[in-house]
């Protein structure tokens, strides 16, 4: 890559334009030098797609929570880009227990302590967790 080919395609989603990464490219004498890049179209497309997939799934889950098919834990897990295995580790529970907590009926009976624990993991208040989708 030549110095004047270092891509400057703005990464204009989720505040991605705040970071200018350093890249190595060769100058006219063939010597390597560091140049900052605003972003690259190819990478932007790939990253944007990954985020869009996350947002789509999140919207679907939000609907399911509203319809009473899933508990808010499923929603906030996805919102925090977690999978069941990771959430289980943070919660100190087995995966099957976390999956059980996805059931609205089970969720209603969760203790205050457990709710507080989940809320802390998701960086929200217990009330926000309980009242989501209502």
């Amino acid at each position: 890559m030549k110095a004047d080919e270092v891509p400057q395609d703005k990464r204009d989603f989720k505040e991605g334009d705040k970071i200018h990464k350093l890249m190595y490219a060769v100058d006219t004498d063939g010597k390597y030098t560091g140049i900052t890049s605003a972003g690259w179209e190819a990478e932007n497309i790939a990253t944007k797609q990954a985020w869009d997939a996350v947002d789509e799934e999140l919207a679907e889950t939000a609907e399911k929570v509203k319809r009473g098919e899933l508990s808010p834990i499923a929603y906030f897990m996805q919102k925090n880009l977690m999978e069941v295995s990771l959430l289980a580790k943070y919660a100190g529970k087995w995966q099957w227990q976390v999956k059980r907590h996805f059931k609205p009926a089970v969720f209603k009976k969760l203790s205050g302590d457990m709710l507080a624990k989940y809320a802390a993991i998701f960086n929200i208040t217990a009330d926000e967790l309980k009242n989501f989708g209502k």
Binding site: E43, T47, Q49, A50
Partner: peptide, 14 residues
């Protein structure tokens, strides 16, 4: 997309 991201994402140096 994942291959491209691994190729270019945070701190891969291009």
């Amino acid at each position: 997309g994942n291959v491209i991201r691994m190729q270019e994402e945070i701190g891969t140096g291009g």
